[in-house]
Nucleic acid binder design. Structure first.
Lengths: 239, 239
DNA sequence: CGTAGGTTTGAGGTTGGTCAACAGGTGTGG
DNA sequence: CCACACCTGTTGACCAACCTCAAACCTACG
């Protein structure tokens, strides 16, 4: 059940058997969440943190005028709201963007991990800090990249993150979002997202049909995005 | 020396004498950094994390075409790069936006804190997680707020954060950035930032002369920004 | 007195938003 | 089986927001 989390963490540092056992002990209550359903509500005070096992989920906020901004996308093996363990109150919602399978770690158990397993604690801390690094990269993309570059960057990021957890084959991955949802993650209007998408398609760097995204020319896509994966911290070293 | 850090953390949970002593032991090497100087370089692998004692600092990245995006602003009492303790490699630079006084905590000492002081560890973890919450709020502002709303939001945020560490008096605080730097934090051109600024000034909600920013009408500013400080987690509770 | 950094203003062009319509696919009920 | 509603994607027209370029202005400072 927690294989993908282990894959995710092991890409950054080695976990020993005791730590893996501890994770297995702490993570439980597997359940399914249908597309479109909120798994965590804004303003709530969850008593547990949620690990995504299958599917794509998004963190989002909606403003008074109804505009929505997705602030993070999550792939299998990601914690959706580990930060809530420290923050206590959710400052955003989390929605299932495809059918999702999730499991939960109770905060009282996580607290016990921080009391007894320093290295595992640091690895969990690391995963929230990588979230932060991704946030920063999104800020850079929103502020200073072209829209085409921003979209290309998002695709590069998802491609890379999904590769780590074995969800890419034949240069393709399942991208279940609608164009409206992608627009809400880039901060674009739906119409303009569509036109931006067509520019990328026109360059023959990607194909996206039936919710399957195929990268046709990785080097060119990377160049358009100015993508450098170092912010994802896919380096194995002692933490 | 670490009073402001304690102020910052104590706004979220109580630190006991032992924890404060531990922080005093770990944080040392006070030094001054002149305006415009990089305190941490992108791509470096710092062996210590930096606490800002005085001044304003910014995290930033610059793209190939020379465009710069500031991804975070820091006020006294903030750790600038505590995340580097876990990340190891800096994915961005940190620049002094005014004369700064800083101190340092060596990573080997922080590691020891994680081995021996679980609650203090959680408090440090918390502070990186609040950074993340601020990042998310910036993403929302960049993607879905009007430029005027975005600027107003930034001012509300700085006002609130500076209040916590006692850097606001008479509804005024020192905002040492140039308009070009503010433009780089909002992802705007300098010209357009200037025009946006004039809209806010025209509404008589702020004044900004000689690098002193005065909030003339907090309620109206808050309304324009749709500002809600809950993401800053200024709630005292057990963590 | 000249220079440099910062702010302000205007002109003109590009980007991106809104509105509106249409096409294709799917599911439902008559 | 057909008619209809609904959802997603696509396209065009039009307008507002925002960018770039350029110049002027205003200090502070050597």
């Amino acid at each position: 059940m927690i294989e993908l989390l282990i894959l995710n963490l092991s890409a950054r540092d080695t976990l020993d058997a005791g730590e893996i056992g501890e994770l297995e002990r702490v993570i439980k209550h597997e359940r399914l969440v249908p597309t479109g359903v909120d798994m965590v509500r804004e303003g709530s005070r969850p008593k547990e943190s949620t690990l995504l096992l299958e599917g794509i989920a998004g963190r989002y906020r909606v403003l008074e005028d109804g505009k929505r901004q997705i602030t993070a996308l999550h792939v299998p093996g990601d914690f959706l709201d580990l930060h809530a363990f420290m923050l206590k109150t959710m400052d955003h919602g989390v929605i299932a963007l495809s059918p999702c399978k999730v499991a939960a770690a109770e905060h009282k158990d996580l607290k016990q991990v921080t009391e007894t397993c320093p290295h595992l604690t640091r690895m969990l801390w690391l995963s929230t800090v990588i979230d932060g690094a991704i946030h920063r990269e999104w800020i850079v993309a929103m502020g200073r990249r072209s829209k085409k570059g921003h979209l290309a960057h998002l695709i590069c990021e998802l491609f890379t993150r999904l590769s780590v957890v074995g969800r890419v084959s034949d240069n393709s991955f399942h991208l279940p979002l609608s164009q409206a949802e992608v627009a809400d993650t880039l901060g674009l209007s739906l119409v303009h997202l569509n036109k931006t998408l067509q520019k990328l398609r026109g360059d023959d760097v990607i194909r996206w049909v039936d919710r399957i995204l195929t990268v046709l020319d990785w080097n060119e896509l990377k160049r358009i995005a100015e993508f450098d994966d170092s912010y994802l911290n896919l380096i194995h070293e002692p933490r």
